[in-house]
Amino acid sequence: MIAVIDGGLHTTVQDFPGRVGYWNIGIPPSGPMDPLAFRIANRLVGNQDDAAGLEITAKGPKLLFLKDTMIALTGAKLHGNLADQEVPWWEAVHVKKGDILSFGTLQGSGFRSYLSVAGGFDIPLYLGSKATFPYGRFGGLEGRPLKAGDLLSIDEAKKKEVLTKEGRTLPPENIPEYNHEWAVGVIPGPHEAPDFFTPEDVETFYSTPWRVHHNSNRLGYRLEGPRLQFARTDGGEGGSHPSNIHDCAYAIGTINFTGDMPVILTVDGPSLGGFVSIATIVTSEFWKIGQAAANNVIYFKKMSYKEAFANRWRQEKMLNSLT
C-alpha cells in the first residue's frame, strides 16, 4: 500500500497498451504517453507490460510507502528523494516500509516520468484496463489524477510472482535521449494526396520546425507553424474548410489538420472526425511526443514502412532483453 501525501501536478494510474478494443465506440486507449519509458519501468521490476504504474507530469507527487517494495523510475528525470537519498533513475530500487518518496524539479529535458512497483497497482478494471481517462471520468483511481489522501494498493499476489533483483539497471546505451528538439519519424498518409495537400504543403510540413503549443495535453499536441495552402478551396460535402472530409476514424499519432492548426492526436484523443491527416507517427517513435514539453520543437522525418518495421522490431528486442 502507498499513501499519497501530495498528488503532484497531474499524476495518473496507467497501463499498457491501455483500453484497446473500443475505438469503434469512441473510447480511447489512454495508457502512457511515453510507452517506451513506461514499459522499461515495468520490466526493471520484473512486471509484465500490463502492470499498472504511475505517469507523472512535470511536478511529481509525494508518496509514503506502507510496505517494503521494489520500484523503478524512468522517463524525464526529476530531482527525486527516497528516505533523504537521491533516488536513481532507470534502475530497480528497494523501498522500505515508512520511506517517503518526493520529487523536485525537472533536470534537463523531457516532460513525463514513470513509476512502476513490483506487482503493479491493484485497481479494478474498467472495460478491460486500469488506465485513467480523466476526461471521461473513468479508469484508474475514480477516473481522476491522484490527490492527497489517496491510497494505492499493490497487487500482492502478483508481487510474489515477480522476481525483482535490486539494482537491475537499464544498460546506458538503451536510455532514450531527451532534448528540446525532436526529430520524429512518420509515414506519410492517410491523406497526403494531391486531392488535399499541394506539393508545397508537403514540403512545408517536412521542413518546418513546429513549436509545441502550451495548450497541448494527453488528448492532442497542437503545433504552431506556417499555414498550409490546401489543394481545395473547401471541404465539399465534408464541410466548409478545405481540411474537412467525411468522418473517418483516426490513428493514434496521426497529424491531423483541424482547420488551419496541425494537431498530433495522442492516447486520450478523439477516435472519429472530419479532418484530413497528412502523416502518422510510427509506433517506435511515438514516445517522443510524450516527452515533448511546451515550446519544444518538432521536426517530422519521413520514414518508409520498412524502416518503421525494422525500428519497431529492434525496440521490442531491446525490451525483451530486459526480462
Binding site: 512518420v186 509515414i187 506519410p188 498518409g189 492517410p190 491523406h191 497526403e192 494526396a193 473517418c248 476514424a249 490513428a251 493514434i252 499519432g253 496521426t254 491527416s277 502523416a279 502518422t280 507517427i281 510510427v282 509506433t283 519521413k302 514502412y305 518503421a308 518495421f309 519497431r312
Partner: peptide
C-alpha cells in the same frame, strides 16, 4: 508514400484505396 494499394471499381463493388496510417494502422 501514402497509399499502400488500391483496387479499381468493379461491377457491384466500389473502388478501394488502402491508405497508410503509420505502421500500426491501415485506412
Amino acid at each position: 508514400d501514402a497509399v499502400a494499394s488500391s483496387i479499381p471499381e468493379r461491377e457491384g463493388a466500389p473502388r478501394v484505396v488502402y491508405r497508410m496510417a503509420g505502421d500500426a494502422y491501415l485506412l
